[in-house]
Computed example of a mutant assay.
Amino acid sequence: MKRNGTINIGTVAKRTIAMEAAAINDLQQFIDADFERVVELVAQCEGRLVVTGIGKSAIIAQKIVATLNSTGTQALFMHAADAIHGDLGMIRQEDIVLCISKSGTSAEIKVLVPLVKNFGNTLVAMVGNTNSFLAQEADYILNTTVSQEACPNNLAPTTSTTAQLAMGDALAVCLIEWHGFTAADFAKFHPGGALGKKLYLKVADLSKLHQAPSVLLTSTLREVIVEISSKMLGVTAVLDEKGGLQGIITDGDLRRMLEKNVSTGEVTAKDIMSVNPKAIQQNELAINALEMMRQHDITQLLAMDGERYSGIIHLHDLIREGII
């Protein structure tokens, strides 16, 4: 396809974003009694929200379904064209049907709507023409009217699909707050990948991967060096004879001690250690350990089980798990 040599790419892109942003902002006037009632019905529904559409609206419907399912609202996608060729069988009596269409007059929509009505299901229309067939037949309307498409020919679904997506997000977020859906709930549905790990991976899950380096207050310099080297974490905890945490020794502490040119023969762990080490409870989320490391500009934390030292969590553990 030949390029139009007069186009200013930056101007066109900014105009598109501005038009779509304005369309989303205008949706606020359409948050009405129908919208509120739809949220209530879906929140209290004993079935699922079956979302359908044709063309680009069908793609938006799939995204809305994905968002709802991942945030605790049971939803199902049904393509409007496939619905009239057998997929209507997926609709149960207790389901609510949400039909998405800009025009509300597509041929497939006109066939599908009477069938849904005959089933007795509540029909919600997310539609850009409130005088359309779909809008007139629906029990409730989610108005996504836009003044024009961002497409210069005012044809390709651009602004209209953006408005549909935003309205779907508004519905989903209302349902999240209605149900009190928490980050812990979210983690149940997102166990894979870095996102899931941020929501469920605990300090203990990582600290247990290593031996827990430790020395006593009276341990010699040689014993300290051997312990740090053998455990390969660049650090060791310092404990008293009862196992109580007293301090921490890092590679940096050793270097600073050697730079003082002191006699090393009588040096013990107590002489080298830093007191009041940074620590975190082992049942804390690993992402919280990362925040502590960033806050204090360090690369490891002591993991604690109550008052007892249980191990080390290292920045490398978080990198390996994709938390960073």
Rank of each mutant, 00 (worst) to 15 (best):
L41S: 02
I7W: 01
S160K: 06
N153M: 15
A212E: 07
E307T: 12
Q211E: 15
I141P: 01
A125Y: 13
C45L: 10
T236G: 06
I9F: 14
F133D: 08
N261R: 13
M1E: 06
T71H: 11
A107F: 04
M273N: 07
T130L: 08
A81G: 12
C99V: 15
T220G: 02
L68T: 10
G311K: 02
Q300P: 00
K208L: 12
T130Q: 10
L217D: 04
N69Y: 09
G322S: 03
V111I: 12
N131K: 11
P152V: 06
A237C: 09
V12Q: 05
P157M: 09
A83E: 04
G53I: 11
L206G: 04
L88I: 14
A184T: 09
S274A: 13
H316F: 03
L155Q: 08
L88R: 02
C151V: 06
G244W: 06
W178G: 00
A212M: 09
F186Y: 15
R92P: 00
G265N: 14
G311V: 01
Q246D: 05
A80M: 08
Q281H: 12
Q246A: 11
L290I: 09
S310F: 00
V267W: 10
T105E: 15
F30H: 15
N4M: 02
R320D: 13
K198V: 04
N4S: 04
A183I: 01
F30P: 00
L171E: 03
V38I: 13
I287N: 02
V65M: 09
H79R: 04
G234Q: 12
N276R: 10
V113C: 01
Q29F: 03
V146G: 02
N4D: 15
L41E: 10
V127E: 06
C151F: 03
F30S: 14
Q295F: 05
D253N: 14
I91V: 15
A83T: 09
H296T: 00
E94L: 01
E108W: 06
T218V: 05
E137M: 13
A23Q: 09
T161R: 08
N129C: 05
A194C: 07
A58M: 08
L285E: 08
N283T: 12
L290W: 09
I59S: 04
L254V: 10
M1C: 02
D34G: 06
A135C: 05
L254G: 07
